[in-house]
Nucleic acid binder design. Structure first.
Length: 549
DNA sequence: TTTTGAATAT
DNA sequence: TATATTCAAA
């Protein structure tokens, strides 16, 4: 009963953040109901067992956040907050989008729905993860419209959404640009589909020949072409096509080829980051590649570094894989935050004996690649930070092995205070709770790889007083397990095939029988078995879910 | 043909 | 951790 609901709301207005109401209420006109709540700034979502588009339109135009058709699925509910959020964030805007619906008739998918005459159906984003970002238009990926009924997802017209101020967040920037253009003429920044006219292509070709093979990269080409409204990505795409066609003379410099890069350095080709142990995402502080979190259960020691390094920009170091006990060779770079006393460690390198795993905390997304380059640079921006080397005396930690190795550059040293090999329990616990704390093996630090200078400072000293001056102190397996250091041996053994090692098979069997007994097994986990291991780990943990572990 | 997601490289 | 480039699928 609307009247009952309203009186409840009147009494305790602040207790109600959202009202979901049937569009057909016995005692009150739903629009009047909506207006009352609108004054109280309480968002309203209407529901109905039948989808009457006109009613829905009207409700949305009157300011309802959304219109749901019953039955309402859990998925619908899960994503509903977004509509409320948008509604609150962008209150009523009656601005109409000129592009709306202009490109949406392909496929005739909307027939059965008949949302409006143009057929421009917008499917609300499900789960709030992925959205269709189609150039600012209210377009729907064709071919999915029929899913709408199946999923009981409410559909709206663009116009209705516009009128009610509902927008997809991702479009906000583009809309803002439209506002700019509408108000002050043209900005010229509107992303548009590139058409490679002969004239444009001529400029492209001219840039190619001017730059030469080596320097013919998208950004340089674009700069030289000096045409507005073209993005780096568009140039890159064109370049790609030209290369495929063979109509351009540029070939990728061999140094840029992934494969040749490795061969040149007598290394294995790097594994795909998504195929094995996944990377550490610093944005989310999680391990793994987007959408592939199932692969994240890599041994912690493989990913986080409890090791503190400083005073070097580009250094190699070795540490132990706490699980296998084997030495890992990594390459690290220091990075700063805005706080000069803070460092990030970036690792790039290969694991000894786990050569398919590429350890890196790097990620990239090509931000700005779709932006029109500013033809007139505003000025030169300088990096104002620098490494505070005063804290870290310059020392040469290079060892004879390092000097002789084609893999190891400069400052190679042994990391001090490496904890001994973890036992199974420690391993599990650390992988669940955080990095292994080498200072106190009974505790596990939740600190990530962000370090303070204070911590960093003491490292070189320990290195100096420690092992680095004595090459004999390097673990034997630095050479034992590293046929890869040998050119011929490295190429002879199976490169990057993720072939299971027989030893690891045995380990897996052991673990299946009795995990406790399998600690500190000296076999070497092969990277290709990481998935199997993770799966097993998950299963085991699930089985023992009563266990506090 | 062009855009775009995502992996890889810088 | 941002940007740049590449690959390949949409």
């Amino acid at each position: 009963m609307a009247s009952v609901a309203l009186s409840m709301i009147m009494e305790q207005k602040d207790d109600y953040k959202l009202v979901m109401a049937n569009i057909n209420m016995p005692d009150m006109d739903s629009l009047s109901f909506l207006r009352v709540l609108h004054k109280k700034e309480i968002p309203v979502i209407f529901m109905s067992s039948e989808m009457n588009v006109n009613v829905a339109k009207k409700a949305l135009a009157e300011g309802a956040c959304f219109f749901l058709e019953k039955p309402i699925s859990l998925e619908d509910l899960k994503s509903m907050w977004q509509h409320v959020y948008r509604k609150i964030r962008t209150p009523r805007k009656y601005k109409h989008k000129p592009n709306c619906g202009t490109k949406m008739n392909s496929g005739n998918d909307c027939q059965g729905i008949k949302i409006n005459e143009a057929g421009d159906v917008l499917r609300p984003p499900l789960g709030g993860v992925k959205r269709n970002e189609a150039g600012g238009e209210c377009s729907l990926a064709t071919g999915h419209a029929l899913d709408i009924d199946k999923q009981n997802t409410c559909t709206l017209t663009c116009k209705a959404q516009e009128a009610s101020g509902i927008k997809r967040p991702i479009d906000d920037k583009e809309e803002q640009e439209e506002v700019n253009r509408d108000s002050n003429g043209t900005t010229g920044d509107k992303k548009h589909r590139a058409v490679w006219t002969p004239e444009l292509h001529l400029k492209f070709t001219a840039a190619l020949s001017a730059l030469g093979d080596l320097k013919s990269r998208p950004k340089a080409i674009l700069k030289l072409m000096n045409v507005p409204n073209i993005t780096v990505r568009q140039v890159a795409s064109h370049l790609q096509v030209q290369r495929i066609r063979g109509t351009d003379t540029t070939s990728l410099p061999s140094s840029l080829s992934r494969l040749s890069n490795c061969i040149n350095r007598n290394e294995f080709p790097p594994a795909k980051q998504s195929s094995l142990v996944c990377q550490y995402d610093q944005r989310t502080s999680s391990f793994g590649v987007q959408g592939n979190t199932a692969q994240l259960d890599a041994p912690n020691s493989l990913i986080t570094s409890p090791i503190l390094l400083a005073g070097f920009n580009n250094h190699d170091y070795r540490r132990q894989n706490l699980y296998s006990g084997h030495t890992i060779l990594s390459h690290y770079t220091n990075h700063h935050t805005n706080n000069p006393s803070e460092f990030y460690l970036r690792s790039q390198g290969q694991f000894q004996n786990l050569n398919q795993i590429r350890e890196t905390s790097s990620f990239g997304y090509g931000a700005g690649m779709n932006e029109i380059m500013n033809q007139q640079p505003l000025g030169i921006e300088e990096n104002s930070f620098r490494t505070s080397e005063s804290h870290f005396p310059s020392m040469n930690y290079m060892t004879p092995e390092a000097a002789a190795s084609p893999y190891i550059s400069g400052n190679t040293f042994q990391v001090p205070n490496e904890p001994s090999v973890m036992n199974q329990e420690q391993y599990y616990t650390s992988s669940l709770t955080g990095p292994f704390d080498s200072q106190n093996q009974n505790q596990f630090s939740t600190e990530g790889a962000r370090l303070t200078t204070e911590l960093l400072e003491f490292v070189p000293e320990q290195i100096a007083s420690g092992n680095t001056t004595n090459p004999n102190k390097f673990p034997a397996d630095f050479n034992d397990g590293s046929q890869k250091l040998d050119t011929t041996a490295g190429e002879a053994s199976s490169p990057n095939e993720n072939q299971p090692l027989s030893e690891y098979d045995e380990l897996l069997k052991l673990l299946e029988e009795d995990p406790q007994e399998a600690s500190c097994v000296g076999s070497v986990p092969n990277a290709g078995d990481a998935d199997r291991y993770c799966e097993w780990l998950r299963e085991t943990l699930l089985e023992n879910s009563t266990d506090p572990l």
